[in-house]
Amino acid sequence: MSRKRDKGDGHSPFWRGPLLAWGALLLLLAVNVALAYLLGGDNPLIGVGIAVAMVLVVAIIFMDLRRSGPINRSLAGAGLVWLGIMFALMFADYLTRS
């Protein structure tokens, strides 16, 4: 957040990281579509797994979590943990219904 580090790492220009991330995201998207056709859409875990990888790329590079303080990182982590609680306990019901 300070001015210094927004100028980049000193030797690499400010656009380099984001541009690489953009390439990685397009690649992951292509892989995801290809896998959906190859494996059929029956297994949601593969698609969601790749989407989560894309989300992590955006969070770490675009949203700058890499260099954000521990508090912001914990906040992002807390979101995932709470989503985990919601899914886990909701499916504690749905997966055990007779």
């Binding site: 306990l89 504690a92 019901d93 749905y94 055990t96 219904r97 007779s98």
Partner: peptide
């Protein structure tokens, strides 16, 4: 939260 749903048809394990 599920303790509000004991008689709702929620699974016994839940």
């Amino acid at each position: 939260w599920g303790h509000h749903m004991f008689v709702s048809g929620q699974s016994g394990y839940a």
